[in-house]
Computed example of a mutant assay.
Amino acid sequence: MPKLKEDYTKQEKINGVVYNMSPSANYRHSIVNGNIYGKLREGFKGSLCLTFMENLDYRYHVEENDDYVIPDIMVICDRKHLKGSAYTGVPRFIVETLSPATALNDKTIKKDIYQNAGVSEYWIVSPKERAVEIYYLEDSVYVLKYFYILQDDTEEEGYNADTIITLRDFPHITMALEEIFENVE
């Protein structure tokens, strides 16, 4: 019997354990993801790379098991690893946007998964704090390279809303810190 819409639950399977990701995160989560996705989609127009937002399973150990995660945002450039609703290659860039239910996994287990898989750049974004942590893979280990907390009041010391963030592997793609958190109060 097919699932009814109200029976649908979003899940991830990590180390054989199924994590229920329902109910959905609050609206700020979606706003931030949409803001980043829009900049990436625009930047990759005409490219072989594709950007996915919350809708593609990443099967990171396909040769060992059927575990998968669903990154909030994922950029892939090797399309031969796209099959159905899953990707089995190495993404070039991943963003996880924190919500109370997933924050611990995003900062620990999933960060380790992406590091071990060889994902070059990983962002952890907090809509609540309006903060971005940017990790680069260096010698097979993630190194926190940048950490920003949006200060968009021009009267305050540390104003940084116009700070430009550039993707390391894709220097033609940039976004201002204020663009990531546009419409997030």
Score class of each variant (00 low, 15 high):
57 D>W: 10
58 Y>N: 14
142 Y>I: 01
65 N>G: 12
83 K>C: 13
54 E>P: 02
77 C>N: 14
67 D>F: 07
57 D>E: 13
25 A>N: 10
13 K>F: 07
103 A>F: 06
66 D>Y: 13
143 V>F: 07
88 T>V: 07
142 Y>A: 00
149 I>M: 10
85 S>M: 11
153 D>W: 02
128 K>D: 08
135 Y>K: 09
25 A>I: 05
119 V>A: 04
91 P>A: 01
120 S>F: 00
132 V>H: 04
67 D>E: 12
129 E>L: 08
49 C>L: 08
105 N>D: 13
84 G>E: 12
145 K>F: 03
129 E>I: 00
71 P>L: 11
107 K>H: 03
143 V>S: 06
62 V>G: 11
79 R>T: 13
117 A>Y: 00
126 S>F: 02
75 V>L: 10
146 Y>V: 00
57 D>S: 14
26 N>M: 06
12 E>G: 04
138 E>W: 04
46 G>F: 02
92 R>S: 06
69 V>E: 07
123 W>N: 00
131 A>R: 11
28 R>L: 05
87 Y>K: 09
94 I>D: 01
141 V>I: 12
114 Y>R: 03
99 S>T: 09
39 K>A: 15
18 V>C: 02
76 I>A: 05
121 E>A: 01
116 N>M: 00
27 Y>Q: 10
20 N>M: 10
31 I>Y: 02
65 N>Q: 11
118 G>L: 01
103 A>D: 11
119 V>G: 04
149 I>G: 00
104 L>Q: 12
67 D>S: 12
143 V>R: 11
25 A>E: 08
98 L>D: 05
27 Y>T: 12
148 Y>Q: 13
76 I>H: 05
33 N>H: 03
22 S>N: 07
124 I>D: 01
84 G>D: 14
34 G>F: 03
145 K>C: 06
39 K>Y: 04
18 V>S: 05
60 Y>K: 11
39 K>M: 09
113 I>R: 06
29 H>S: 13
92 R>L: 01
62 V>D: 14
20 N>C: 08
87 Y>M: 07
56 L>W: 10
19 Y>I: 14
118 G>V: 05
129 E>C: 02
91 P>C: 00
40 L>N: 08
114 Y>M: 06
42 E>T: 14
77 C>L: 11
137 L>Y: 02
67 D>Y: 07
135 Y>R: 10
24 S>A: 15
102 T>L: 09
88 T>C: 06
19 Y>G: 04
23 P>N: 01
11 Q>L: 01
80 K>V: 15
97 T>C: 04
132 V>M: 12
110 K>R: 13
114 Y>V: 05
113 I>H: 06
84 G>Q: 14
134 I>Y: 05
113 I>A: 03
11 Q>I: 13
54 E>G: 13
28 R>D: 10
44 F>I: 14
130 R>I: 05
